[in-house]
Computed example of a mutant assay.
Amino acid sequence: MNNPIQNYNPSDVGQINGNIFGLPFDYTTANLIIIPVPWEVTVSYGAGTANAPQRILDASPQLDLFDFDNPDGWKQGIFMMEIPQDILDKNKYYRQQAATIIQRLEKGKPLTDAPNLTSLLTEINQTCENVNQWLFDECHQAINDGKTVAVIGGDHASPLGYMQTLANNYSSYGILHIDAHADLRNAYEGFEFSHASIMYNAMKLPQISKLVQVGLRDICQDEVETINQSNNRIVAYYDPIIKQKLYSGTTWIDLCKEIVSNLPEYVYISFDADGLDPKLCSNTGTPVPGGLELEQAFCLIREVVNSGRKIIGFDVCEVGDAEWDGNVGARVVLKLAYLMDLSQ
């Protein structure tokens, strides 16, 4: 087998070769397989995140590959699978269909007196479940092939199939969830697999022993009660409280160590771009003032590695459909790939 890195210079001009970061790997030679999921059927505010995998791919060759945590991290081999056009096409169709349901609900009109929309809702839920199953199968195959896996969404509903795959492979793991939103709503707007329901659905998996949420600042009463009644299975670090502690003299590094102490040995990172300050990803689906700086987020994930915990997978979701957002999203993907490799 040819060695793909034998004549590769990581300091050279980034190659536009179809692979993420212009790296010289394919499915066979890569260790990390990135699966794009261009899906945002249930977005309830701004659209465009279905194009995030393409935006991130387009921006990625512009990034330098050197990293202070893991200087040779690119050598693990990173390969992004082809963006599935059939899923992108279905997304476009069902996104328009879902909008009619959302518009009706926003006007305060129930679906019960609109049988056509009730049957449409059932169809959308089934289609979303089919996408989850497709991702489950793709992740299962890659893991069976000895690969590690990451997902680039779409909206935050995108990675559920991967979380389900990991539940088949680990008897217990935790999620470190960076987000402005708790995503603990039960079938938000009637959509069983809503972007606002990803963590509600994840918590149905008994293998997920802990959910640690960081940066929450746009949250409903029901979600707060869900967190408070979770018997410490869900631990929330709300953005206003984080900021108050920082203003009062607590260091971010000490807070990171406290956050990480809640996590079990195996950790999955779920990174929603709206967990960041919106100046970094202003075109994300549901931007909220406040949030983390990019280096704050990286510092937190670095502490997961420094603690001796193992990162078993990650997703990056809700990156907006804009060049700058793609640039930031690509940097998040690269850093998480390097830190996951380091944690192995």
Rank of each mutant, 00 (worst) to 15 (best):
Q97S: 09
P287F: 04
G46A: 03
A52G: 02
G215C: 06
I178V: 11
Y93P: 01
N186K: 10
K257E: 15
N70P: 00
G320Y: 02
V288H: 00
L135H: 03
L342R: 12
S171V: 06
S230D: 13
K210C: 07
E138V: 04
D315A: 06
L205H: 10
W74V: 02
G320R: 09
A337P: 09
F79C: 04
P159T: 00
A196S: 15
F68H: 13
N3M: 10
D86C: 08
G174S: 07
V319W: 00
M340N: 02
D222T: 08
S11Y: 14
D325W: 05
R95A: 08
I16V: 14
L135P: 04
T226N: 13
V288D: 01
D89L: 12
F79Q: 03
K147T: 05
Y188G: 08
D218L: 10
K243I: 12
P10F: 03
A30C: 11
G48P: 03
K245A: 14
L292D: 01
Q126Y: 11
I253F: 09
Y170H: 15
I259E: 10
M80T: 13
M80K: 08
V235C: 12
I83W: 02
R185I: 09
G108K: 02
S11R: 14
S11E: 15
Y162H: 07
N51V: 02
N2T: 09
N3H: 13
P38A: 13
N306G: 06
V267S: 04
W324D: 14
I312W: 01
L105G: 13
G153Q: 06
D183V: 08
M203V: 14
L176K: 12
Q141M: 03
D145C: 02
G22T: 06
N186D: 15
Y162T: 07
I312N: 03
Y94W: 14
K279S: 03
E192C: 10
K92F: 08
D12E: 15
L120P: 10
N232V: 10
L63Y: 02
E295W: 14
T49N: 10
S171E: 15
L339T: 11
Y247T: 15
I208F: 05
I241C: 02
C299L: 13
